[in-house]
């Protein structure tokens, strides 16, 4: 049985195949309209989410399947102290596939060992978010026409930004990816990511606190939010939350073909005035997220002949 816990669970051919399938669905949305008829997705969200949960639900509904689940751990038996293992053993009796978000790192991996059905990691604390990565890769491929030979800037909270961790890991497999890591000194990429992924794969990288200086060299700027929910100390959050704000003035220094991405939700790190700039891709990412999740569900349920 296949699960998607970490983006590296997918081999390069599997990743490419998923991206191709998602592109096929985009070109021909009716193609898989009944592919999951009679199948149920359990969306187990122990942490709040708008896009990821609704995207999974919309994906399953567009495949002809149905959805059960909860959108808040407080409304499940987790509030009574039920373990993750027991919760997913129970849900595995009702559903054909599980999409799970949990505040604790590694919870979906634990779930995959007990559920008895495929488990998709829909975000585990500040650790990984592989389906966002798939949406990001699909967006990069469709915007740039390639997944290699790109200078990509990651800006904001690179310490707890799980989308950043998963995307850098996925990009490490492609040739010619250079990284510009723009973050406050307090929120750099974690040591394990730098050692096990960036340095191990000889990815050229620079670390800086100067967003404006880095901007003109970038093919893609991937903005992230400083996440209040990851801080134990609110004073630290307040001090760091507005460190980087992308606005229309700064965009003048960027390349005319640079793409601005963001996993959303945004707070104020991208001015709404940037939304009308043709280089802004973050709402395209949202739409691509549904299509790639459709491709993923189809693949893990093995319903395509």
């Amino acid at each position: 049985m296949r699960h998607l816990i970490d983006i590296t669970d997918l081999s390069q051919p599997e990743l490419d195949s998923l991206l191709d399938l998602a592109s096929e669905i985009i070109e021909n949305p009716g193609k898989c309209a009944d592919a999951c008829k009679g199948k149920k997705l359990a969306a187990l969200f122990f942490e709040p989410s708008t896009r990821t949960r609704l995207s999974f639900e919309a994906a399953m509904l567009d495949l002809g399947g149905s959805v059960i689940g909860f959108s808040d751990g407080g409304s499940s038996s987790a509030a009574k102290g039920e373990s993750v293992a027991d919760t997913v053993r129970t849900v595995g009796c009702y559903a054909d596939i599980i999409a799970m978000r949990h505040p604790k790192e590694g919870a979906p991996l634990l779930a995959s060992r007990h559920a008895g059905v495929p488990v998709i990691n829909a975000g585990d604390g500040g650790h990984n978010h592989p389906t966002q990565t798939l949406a990001d890769l699909l967006t990069i491929k469709r915007e740039k026409g390639r997944l290699g030979s790109l200078n990509i800037g990651f800006c904001g909270d690179l310490k707890f930004g799980r989308t950043v961790h998963s995307l850098i890991t996925a990009l490490s497999r492609y040739e010619g990816i250079a990284l510009t890591l723009i973050s406050p000194k307090e929120l750099p990429v974690p040591e394990y990511l730098k050692a096990s992924v960036i340095e191990k794969n000889n990815m050229p990288f620079t670390e800086t606190v100067d967003m404006e200086a880095a901007l003109p060299e970038l093919d893609i700027l991937y903005m992230t939010r400083v996440q209040k929910e990851r801080f134990f100390n609110e004073a630290d959050y307040i001090r760091l939350k507005d460190r980087f704000i992308l606005d229309a003035y700064k965009m003048k220094n960027a390349r005319p073909d640079m793409s601005v991405m963001h996993p959303l939700p945004r707070v104020n790190e991208i001015s709404v005035k940037v939304d009308d700039d043709p280089r802004a891709c973050y709402f395209k990412q949202v739409l691509n997220g549904k299509f790639i999740r459709m491709a993923l569900i189809l693949t893990l349920l093995e319903v395509l002949s």
Binding site: V84, A85, H102, E105, G106, A107, L110, G125, H127
Partner: peptide
């Protein structure tokens, strides 16, 4: 020792 890890919360893991 990571307080954010599931091992800090799940019983007998």
């Amino acid at each position: 020792k990571n307080p954010r890890c599931i091992t800090s919360a799940e019983q007998e893991i």
